[in-house]
Amino acid sequence: MAMFFLDQPPMLSRATFDRADEIRDDPDRMASGWPTARVLLVDGNGRYPVADGGGLHWLDATHLGAEPPADAVFLGLDSGGRDLWTRRVDHIDGPTDDPRRGAHGLDADEAGLLATALGILNWHATARFSPVDGSVTAPARGGWVRRHAESGVDEFPRTDPAIITVVHDGADRVLLGRQTVWPDGWYSTLAGFVEPGESLEQCVRREVHEEVGITVREPRYLGSQPWPFPRSLMLGFAAIGDPDEPLAFLDGEIGDAAWFDRAEVIEALEQGGEWVRADGAVGTGTDERRLRLPGSISIARSLITAWAYADR
């Protein structure tokens, strides 16, 4: 089989907007940009407001007051140089969407801004107190650190690295698994969090063995994608396994796994479909296809697609 690569970055990794890190240290500059700034609101479930055309609906910043609220986060600059912010709220008026379903309809920068907003807001939600001594922390640097009230020590945003691997046989078969809570027919690549003291390649071998009981070789990095559910970075790999090696679900996370032929995978890819209903909930599983693949915003979809069309 020919070596395969991602033909383009995964959907949430294509943004080129200016994060303008230098502005985060300049409160006067952020305040001066606030009157013309725009704000993306996000609710506690990660839903975001949708514009008429299906893109992000931004709120004029002045609707929130004359200066940036303490809990707002500076995201960067849009293509016209306007400041962009985000803020978590309890309720959003008007149409909203779930990022797992709706992000595939956003352009590259909007998808990246949404992923950034979700990741940083999810971190703030769990970082109100110091992990060292339990003291109260407060946002600083435009929301990109949380500062200890007494010591002034900064806590930085946390991102959890995880590997995600398309396991294939070096020819025309790929191994996909499904969690026990997924409806029948829903399969994806294998994934897991990196442990302390572990390289990415070691994590690939360990996670695949824990989940399906086989030993893979030649783990090869392909690309990465932020996955802000709640704040992960998915590091995509390919690895080779032996279809004759018995499968064993050692850690209990995988309810089933199977080797699929390339033609069946391509058929499933071309049938399309998403894994999330219009209301953002997980689908009902009434689709009777043997194989239903992850949605288009996931790096899992990118990895499977790259493998499936490698020889075409």
Rank of each mutant, 00 (worst) to 15 (best):
T189G: 00
A51Q: 12
A20C: 14
L41P: 06
Y309L: 12
R289E: 04
D279I: 10
E210H: 11
E67A: 11
T36H: 15
S135N: 14
S13I: 05
A20R: 05
D154R: 14
R178I: 07
D109I: 04
L176E: 02
R301K: 14
V194E: 14
G252K: 06
D261T: 08
G80H: 05
G170H: 10
C203G: 13
T116I: 02
A72S: 14
A37Q: 00
D251V: 03
T286A: 07
R87W: 00
R290V: 07
E22G: 15
G273I: 06
S302H: 13
S199H: 09
V208S: 07
A191V: 04
R24N: 03
D256Y: 04
G102V: 02
F156I: 15
M3C: 07
G272E: 13
L106S: 11
D43G: 14
R173P: 01
A61W: 00
E288P: 02
D60Y: 03
S232F: 11
F74V: 00
V132S: 11
R146S: 05
V204A: 02
L75I: 06
G102L: 05
L175S: 05
I120Y: 02
R205A: 08
D26F: 02
P226D: 06
I164M: 09
F249S: 09
H124Y: 14
E22A: 15
G223V: 09
G80I: 00
P246N: 02
R173K: 08
A257R: 06
L40S: 03
Q8D: 11
V166P: 00
W123F: 07
L113Y: 00
